[in-house]
Structures are given as C-alpha cells and as structure tokens.
C-alpha cells in the first residue's frame, strides 16, 4: 500500500461520490457541489496519470468557470431552479429503475473482471519526465496543434457571442407566427410584411432629410 495506492483510492471514491451527489441530490446547488467534488477528484487522478497541466486546467476551467457559471444560473433562477412540484414523485420509478440498472452494470463489470480466468492487468510503463508537463503540452499546442488550438479560441468566442444572443431574448416582442405548421411558416413567412414596413428611403426622401438636417 503505497501513497499512490491510497491517493488513487481516495480520489476515485471522491469522484464517484461526487458524481452520485450530482445526480441524486434534489437541490441543484448540491448537484453543482457534487460536480465540483467530482472535478476535483478527477483532477487528482490526472495528477496520478502524470497530467499536471491538465489537472490545473481542469481545476481552473471546470471548478473556476463551469461550476461557477452553473451556480450563477442557479442563483439567477432562484427557487425555480429546483425540481418543480411533483417531479420527484413522477421520477421515482425512473430513479429506482436507474439504480437497478446501475447495480446491474456494476455486477456485470465485476463479473467480467473477476471471472476472466487469466485476468491480467496492464500496468503502466515507466514515464518520461517530460510527460504531461506544461512545457511539453505547450510545445504541442503552439507547434503542431496550433490550428485546432486557434480554432478552439474561435469556438469559445462564438460560444460567448451565441450565449449572449440566446440569453438576451426580448420576451415582450416574442413573435407568434401565423400558423403552427412549420411549412406554412416557410411559405407565408413574415418577409412580406418586412418588405412593406421598411422601404429604403427614396432619393427625394434622402434629399429632404439632408435639407432638414442642414
């Protein structure tokens, strides 16, 4: 029983427990905390796997940004963020079913692993000291993988813009389309009205405007 063994055991149990908490707790805040715990556990496992940089990123991005974002949204929604009335009752069957499913899967996995007559574990080999270091990953990211890296930044920007665009909706101008049928919407779209409502200013109008402005 080395330190590493213990570390792995603790980290994996923490990750599993956190995951369980995420999906099982009624309050979304608790779920978020569970997610946080899992993330920390996985970060620890990353350390075990010689992925120091990733562990850091995991903590920074997930714990620092994603979970915080979740919490913000939960705060924004207030009490509505929780499960509605009667949801728990409705979901009971599903919960029991899911529990049973998970137990079944666990049993199957255990069966597969233990019953294999000559189950041989594949140990990790010796590790390169450079493996997973910030320098090594940085070399890759700014070297051969620079294009996807830059694309990832683009993706993030697009995501931010998109998130703003989606979240910024104006409920008071929500358009009720004429017909519920998507086909009808396609053929009788609102474009006609738009054409009529926003004609381009004519030359005379422009001139009048300029004159009036002057």
């Amino acid at each position: 029983m080395t330190v590493g063994n213990v570390f792995f055991a603790v980290a994996s149990v923490v990750a599993l427990l956190g995951a369980f908490m995420t999906i099982a707790s009624q309050s979304p805040v608790r779920s978020a905390v569970g997610l946080l715990i899992t993330i920390v556990g996985i970060a620890a496992l990353f350390l075990m796997l010689n992925a120091q940089f990733l562990a850091a990123i995991q903590l920074i991005v997930y714990a620092g940004a994603v979970v915080v974002l979740f919490v913000f949204v939960i705060m924004l929604l207030g009490p509505d963020a929780g499960d509605g009335e009667g949801t728990v009752a409705r979901a009971r069957v599903a919960r029991y079913g899911a529990g049973a499913f998970f137990a079944l899967l666990a049993a199957a996995a255990a069966h597969l692993v233990t019953r294999a007559p000559d189950a041989v574990f594949t140990p990790f080999g010796a590790v390169d000291p450079e493996h997973g270091s910030v320098e090594a990953i940085g070399r890759l990211l700014f070297g051969s993988d620079v294009v996807p890296f830059e694309l990832a930044t683009a993706l993030l920007i697009v995501a931010v813009v998109g998130a703003i665009a989606v979240a910024r909706g104006k409920p008071h101008v929500r358009r009720q389309s004429k017909s519920a049928s998507p086909t009808a919407r396609m053929f009788h779209g609102p474009l006609m009205a738009r054409d009529a409502q926003r004609p381009l200013p004519t030359k005379a109008e422009k001139a009048a405007k300029a004159a009036g402005g002057a």
């Binding site: 474009l191 738009r194 054409d195 926003r198 004609p199 381009l200």
Partner: peptide, 10 residues
C-alpha cells in the same frame, strides 16, 4: 448567390 447580397428593399 450574388442576388442574396443585394438589398431586399430595392
């Protein structure tokens, strides 16, 4: 495709 870039109002 070019027509797509012309203003709808004219």
């Amino acid at each position: 495709i070019f027509v797509l870039f012309l203003p709808r109002q004219s």
